[in-house]
Design a binder for these strands. Structure first.
Length: 387
RNA sequence: GGGCGGUUGGCAGAGCGGUCAAAUGCAUGUGGCUGUAAACCACACGUCUUCGGACUGCGGAGGUUCGAAUCCUUCACCGCCCA
């Protein structure tokens, strides 16, 4: 049942028009996955997501394991039922948290904020330990455990546990991270085979290797041997120069299987997505549209005839800026989203200045509408041969 | 009429002889955010500046002191208490 199809290949780039089949629906690619780390796209209902045209969302193994905990999700018959989203779900494995929750990578200012889960980390070949700075409680994640949890989540696309190395990163460290990731990929694959119930859950492998070409290529060699349902390129957009990221895509993508989906993890801003599509990427996820929305940064297409192949095809609007105080126009009059159909910039700014939660909702709705529209434009551009 | 207490930058509120253009919070302004520790974070926030500083400044006026937001005198206003 699950499968992948390439409907069209661009003649002028590596871009592909694709269809990814899952138990919960068929996804037209290239596509973007709004992030629902904890089983919510912050501030939105699943109905709103559906109305926006979201095809698939992304949840996180690590966060959901901590809360509500896997027992609760099992009792709810999976994440779809629990959150009442019947579309496909991709779940990240927690590998990114190895990077993001590592105290060395956390800006010093953040250690002061005491959010609920402040986690430190230990890692070895067996797996990862996260530890709460608050109560000292330890949490363990291994490739096998991450897989089991994702199956329990009823994930349509599961990600293998990987080690996302930071940037900058020494060659030796990156090498170890690749070897570990490769080893964990093998263990994940074996674990999946043992769990025969997991036929409808696809499993993706992840390429690591930091900015080192030979490591990236070695990673591809090892990972593709295991014949995953799709391949992700991880460890990018982690602080390295943008040029470097594209350079890496240039020399990695040609070595990925042509008949499998390609997923660039955590990327990115609009022009990066367009660029990566041209290099052959089919799937994206990023916190940018949702987080920036909450922080008051809104996106809009620029010009009357927006062509994504042109640079500067979009603008950013800092909605809190004073200049919008009396701007009674809409963010983007061509945008069909609820926000743009109903509310002015001046009102949005006012809601932000009030710290009114509705501001977050309206902004999130609009930015996701923008991103989903961008993907639609990309698909159309491939179809019509523009990119 | 008398006795206390108070008056600090847009607001609240520290400071009580030099390290004070003045803590902190709020408000305001600008920016950042890339598999979400993120409705978060950073910077700015008297005026001018050749970015080295310069000038004005803690209710008003006057004084003491090398030096005052800080001590004294006096005036104004606010609060509480006594007549």
């Amino acid at each position: 049942m699950p499968g992948f199809e390439i409907l069209k290949k661009s003649k002028i780039s590596q871009a592909r028009l694709t269809e990814l089949k899952t138990l919960h629906g068929i996804i037209s690619g290239p596509f973007f996955m709004p992030i629902a780390t904890r089983g919510v796209v912050k501030n939105l209902t699943p109905q709103e997501l559906k109305d926006l045209g979201a095809q698939i969302i992304l949840g996180n193994t690590y966060h959901l394991m901590l809360r509500p905990g896997i027992e609760i999700i099992k009792k709810a018959n999976g994440l779809h039922k629990f959150m009442n989203w019947d579309g496909p779900i991709l779940t990240d494995s927690g590998g990114y948290q190895i990077f993001s929750l590592n105290s060395k990578n956390v800006p010093s200012s953040f250690s002061k904020t005491k959010e609920t889960n402040l986690f430190l980390i230990k890692i070895n070949d067996e797996g990862v330990w996260f530890q709460s700075e608050r109560d000292g409680q330890k949490e363990f994640l291994s490739p096998e455990k991450a897989l089991k949890i994702q199956i329990a989540l009823s994930s349509d696309i599961m990600m293998v546990l990987d080690e996302c190395a930071p940037y900058p990163c020494s060659y030796d460290y990156a090498k170890k991270a690749v070897e570990r990731t490769n080893n964990w990929a093998l263990r994940s694959k074996r674990a999946k085979k043992r769990l025969k119930s997991a036929i409808t859950n696809q499993l993706f492998g992840i390429i690591q290797g930091s900015v080192y070409k030979d490591l990236r290529l070695q990673s591809i060699k090892e990972i593709t041997k295991l014949n995953f349902d799709g391949y992700a390129i991880g460890g990018l957009a982690v602080g390295e120069p943008r040029k470097k990221m594209f350079e890496i895509l240039n020399y990695t993508i040609p070595f990925l299987p042509k008949n499998k989906p390609r997923y660039l993890m955590g990327v990115g801003n609009p022009e990066e997505i367009v660029e990566a599509v041209k290099k052959g990427v089919d799937m994206f996820d990023c916190v940018i549209p949702t987080r920036n929305a909450r922080h008051g940064l809104l996106y809009k297409f620029s010009g009357s005839k927006t062509k994504i192949e042109e640079s500067n095809f979009y603008e950013k609007i800092h909605i809190r800026n004073e200049k919008f105080k009396k701007d009674f126009s809409v963010i983007d009059k061509k945008c069909p989203c609820y926000t743009c159909q109903n509310h002015s910039r001046a009102y949005l700014r006012y809601l932000f200045m009030l710290n009114e939660p509705l501001a977050l909702r309206l902004a999130t709705i609009h930015n996701l509408a923008f991103y989903l529209e961008l993907m639609k434009k990309i698909r159309e551009a491939i179809k019509e041969g523009f990119i």
